[in-house]
Design a protein around this nucleic acid. Structure first.
Lengths: 140, 140
DNA sequence: CCGATTGCTTGAGTCAATCAAGGATCATTG
DNA sequence: CAATGATCCTTGATTGACTCAAGCAATCGG
């Protein structure tokens, strides 16, 4: 399991609970992926293929090197979850798309990753709105 | 940079902002560590050595295999940030402690990782209390 | 004492991530 | 057009996190 991105010292309750939240969220994500024998990175990429798109677009959205995407997509392809077709408009580029099995696994992942849904569900609609407003403000 | 633990689809604003929060937090943590040429895992371990402690205690707290800690501590030791002394009470065990330089780097990390502090600082004291209460409830 | 347990390390293996380099294709422009 | 340069992606090499299996050494329990 990934080590938590833990705070060295928390100077307030709000900071501490923020850290808890992030840690629990990350662990839940990782564990949902693991149930489907996916790494978090694989689950992440798979989840961003609702429409077919190029490698570069993925790399940019995810803020990482293109060669990183090459590897992850190659593994997803080997698992039969994704195809990498030539782009007819630009033969340098490849279009990545989920296979039907990829769709299914992605859907099962979305079902397994209940953390955010569950957490938000513990709040009343009013409280959800408050939380959203507070977090937006905190994010600046 | 680590790929975000992104949601496949978010069904509510609260979920979406929750994801944003986690993503920004994780990236800020990673970037603060990188400024000091540390990996997130190294920063995490270093931050949990306010008192000297055994490898096993670290592994248990961080929820990972002991051999993982062995490696990370070995790298921190090679960087001169940590010592691994024999435990006089149990010669199987090792006591890990920060060196003065480790203290300094850890302090600089705590200073560099401003995300939680800054985010919470954008809220009034009342709002901070509300946020804490809401997140505690959401975490169940 | 002797067997079982504990604390840690080693070794092998997978994956993520980054960087440098390169091939192929497109796009520009002289 | 043809040369130049930019773009899209891949390869190869390296580092680090992480896991598992195996093992050594020390301690503990009967």
């Amino acid at each position: 399991m990934a080590l938590p991105n833990g705070p060295v010292t928390t100077s307030s309750d709000a900071e501490a609970v923020l850290f808890d939240l992030v840690d629990v969220y990350d662990r839940a994500y990782e564990s949902a992926a693991a149930e489907l024998s996916l790494s978090p990175a694989q689950a992440c990429v798979l989840g961003r293929l609702d429409e077919r798109r190029g490698m570069g677009a993925l790399a940019e959205e995810l803020g990482c090197d293109a060669s990183n995407i090459t590897q992850i997509v190659a593994r997803l392809e080997a698992l039969g979850l994704v195809t990498r077709e030539p782009n007819p408009r630009d033969r340098r580029a490849r279009l990545v798309a989920r296979t039907p099995r990829g769709d299914e696994i992605n859907h099962r992942f979305a079902t397994a990753f209940t953390f955010a849904r569950t957490a938000v569900g513990r709040l009343s609609p009013d409280e959800q709105d408050q939380l959203t407003a507070l977090l937006r403000k905190a994010l600046g």
